[in-house]
Design a binder for these strands. Structure first.
Lengths: 336, 336
DNA sequence: TTGAAAGCGCTAACAC
DNA sequence: GTGTTAGCGCTTTCAA
C-alpha cells in the first residue's frame, strides 16, 4: 500500500488533521509544523488519495471529456494538445468517459457523478445529436467546443467562423473574383450556419450579389468535396473561385477541377478551411483558414476551471480568431 | 447529490449490503430480491460512486495513460481510436495523468497510486528517456507501446518493424533497384534498431551488399528527411531508391529530390512509413508501410486488462503485422 | 439469505 | 495551533 496521511502524521509527530491542513493550505498552522510536514510529504513522496478526497466531497481534480466523434477525430488531437498545459497548470487530470456511448440509456450525467468529475468538456456534437437537457440541469460546469450552448453553468468556445469565411471571400474578391462559390459543410450545424452567414456577408461587402446556385452543402469529407465540385462545374456560369468548408473538401474539389481538365489556381481558385497538416503539402499548397485549435483547447480548460471555481461566473461564449494562411491555391481572376 | 446506495436500499426495502452484493454479482442473494434491486437501480439510474469503490480497495476501473510526446502526437489519435472500443467493452475509463511532466521529481507511480489506476499504458518513450525502474517495481500492470519493456507486470506491443522495412526493401528490390538507401529514424531507439535490422535483412535477401554510406539517420521529421536526402543526393553513387523511417521524412526527401531537378518516382523511388493521412494526398501519392495503430490501441487495452485480471499472466510481447500500401512513389529502376 | 458494522483515506467541524 | 471525531459511499467480514 502506498503512503497515506497517517504515515505522514506519525512521522511528523502531529495529527492527521494537521497534515491535512497544511496540504490544503490552511493558514492556521504553525510555520515550523508546516515546514516539517511539507518536508516529510516530499521525502515520503506522499500524494493524497484522490478517491478519498473526492469522497469526502472535496475536489476530485478531474475534468471529464465527452465526444461523439470518438477519440480519433483529427482536430481533437490539436485540441488535446492545447488542453495539456492548462491541465497541468490547474492541476487537473483529464478523464475520457468511455462507457458512455456504449449504452444510450445510461445517463452521461450519472457517469460524471459516479466519477466525481468537476467539469466537462464536450466536443463534436450538433444540437440535435443529443438532448443536453439533463446535463444542463445537473449544474455540472460544462464547456462546449463548437456548439453554442449557453445556459446555467454551461458555456462554449468556438472559432470565429463567420469572420473566417468572410475573410476568405474578401481575399478572393480582392483577387478580382466575382463568381465565388461556397462549398459549405453541414449548413445546418452551428458552425455551418455561421460560415454561410460569413459567406453572404463577405459577398455583400464586396458588392457581389448572392446566388443560390453557388452554394452547395456537404459533410466536410474529401469525397463530398469532389462530388460537390462536379456539381459546381456543371453550372453553365462556372464559378472562378470556391471557398470550402474544410481542407479535405478543398482537396476533393481540386481533384474534380483537374479531372475536368482545368487547373488550380489558373482556372479556379480554391480556399480551404482548418489548415490541417496536409494543407501545406498538397499540390498546389492550399490557401486556407487556420483554426487555432490549441488555443481553443487551452481556453476550454481555463474556462471550465473558471466555472468550477467561481459559481458566479457567467457562462462564457468565447470566440477565437482565425488566420488566413495564403499559399498557392488562389490566383487573380482572369479578365472577364 | 446523486442517488447513492442507501437510497436504493431504502427504496428496495433491503440493506445497503444486499444492494452492494447484487451490484457485485454475489450469488448468495435471493432471486426476487436481486431482481427488485436491479429494477430499482435501473429506474433510479443508480451508478456506484467510483471514488468510494476505489477507496474501499476494490476496482477503480481506471486505466492511466502516460505520454512523452504530449497528447498531440499524430499517431496517438489513432491509437486512442483503437483503445476506445476495448475500453468500453471492458468498462474502463481512461485517465490522462497530466500533472506528471510538470514536476520531474514527482513520481509517476505516486500519481498512479493517488488516482488508483489499475493499469497503465505508456507511449512515446525511448529507453533512456526515463528510469522506469520504479514503475516496474510498483507492480502496476503496465503496457508499453513501441518499447520493448518486459518484466514483472509490464509487457509491450509494437508493429513488426523489422519485417515492415524488410518488406519495403523487397518491394523496391523487386522493382530492380539495387542502390537502395535507408533514410532511417532514431537508429538507436527500439523501433529504429529493428528497422535497420529489417533493412539489412531485406538487402541480404535480395542479394544486395550493405553499404554504410546508404544509411542516414534522422528524427522522423520532414525537415530531417529533406536534409538527409540532400546528403544522399551528394553521394557520387546516388541511390535510385530510398526507404524512409516515416512518411514525413519521405515527403521531405521528395522535396529535396525535386529541388535537385530529379523526379519521383522516375529518377528515385521513395517508400514512406506509417501511412499517415497525408500519404495518400501528396504528389506522388506515397507508397508506404501502414502501421495498424487501431489494433495496437485495442490490444494495448486488452493486454493491460489481462495483466490486471490475471496475476499469473506472463508479460506480453505482442507484435502487430504491417501492410505495404503501394501507391505511386516507386517505379522500376531504369536500366543501369 | 440478509443485515449490522467496521473501515478504506481523507476533510472539516468542533473542542481544547 | 492542534487534535478528536464524524462521515463521504461503498464493500466485506461476521453474526443472525
Amino acid at each position: 500500500m502506498a503512503t497515506n496521511i497517517r504515515d505522514v502524521a506519525k512521522a511528523a509527530g502531529v495529527s492527521v488533521a494537521t497534515v491535512s491542513k497544511v496540504l490544503n493550505g490552511y493558514t492556521t498552522v504553525n510555520a515550523n509544523t508546516k515546514e516539517k510536514v511539507l518536508a516529510l510529504v516530499k521525502e515520503m513522496q506522499f500524494r493524497p488519495n484522490q478517491a478519498a478526497r473526492a469522497l469526502v466531497g472535496r475536489r476530485s481534480m478531474t475534468i471529464g471529456i465527452f465526444l461523439t466523434t470518438g477519440l480519433a477525430h483529427p482536430f481533437f488531437t490539436k485540441i488535446l494538445g492545447g488542453m495539456e498545459q492548462a491541465l497541468k497548470d490547474k492541476g487537473y487530470d483529464l478523464i475520457y468517459l468511455a462507457q458512455l456511448s456504449r449504452n444510450k440509456e445510461y445517463s452521461f450525467v450519472r457517469h460524471c457523478q459516479s466519477r466525481n468529475v468537476e467539469g466537462v468538456v464536450v466536443f463534436g456534437f450538433q444540437h440535435d445529436d443529443m438532448d443536453f437537457g439533463e446535463l444542463m440541469e445537473s449544474g455540472i460546469p460544462t464547456l462546449f467546443i463548437d456548439l453554442d450552448m449557453q445556459q446555467g453553468r454551461a458555456g462554449f468556445i468556438s472559432s470565429d467562423n463567420e469572420e473566417a469565411i468572410g475573410k476568405a471571400v474578401a481575399y478572393v474578391a480582392g483577387l478580382n473574383h466575382r463568381k465565388i462559390a461556397f462549398l459549405s459543410g453541414m449548413r445546418h450545424s452551428y458552425t455551418g450556419r455561421l460560415r454561410l452567414d460569413g459567406y453572404r456577408a463577405g459577398l455583400k461587402k464586396a458588392g457581389i450579389p448572392y446566388r443560390d446556385d453557388y452554394v452547395v452543402d456537404g459533410d466536410f469529407t474529401k469525397e463530398e468535396g469532389y462530388r460537390l465540385m462536379k456539381e459546381l462545374l456543371a453550372n453553365p456560369d462556372r464559378p472562378t473561385a470556391v471557398v470550402c468548408g474544410s481542407d479535405l473538401e478543398a482537396i476533393g474539389a481540386i481533384e474534380a477541377i483537374r479531372e475536368a481538365g482545368l487547373s488550380v489556381p489558373e482556372d479556379i481558385s480554391v480556399v480551404g478551411f482548418d489548415d490541417i497538416e496536409i494543407a501545406a503539402h498538397v499540390s498546389p499548397p492550399l490557401t486556407t483558414v487556420r483554426q487555432d485549435m490549441a488555443t481553443i483547447g487551452r481556453r476550454a480548460i481555463e474556462l471550465v476551471d473558471g466555472l468550477i471555481n467561481d459559481g458566479t461566473m457567467p457562462p462564457p461564449a468565447e470566440i477565437v480568431p482565425t488566420t488566413l494562411v495564403v499559399r498557392e491555391s488562389c490566383a487573380p481572376a482572369k479578365e472577364q
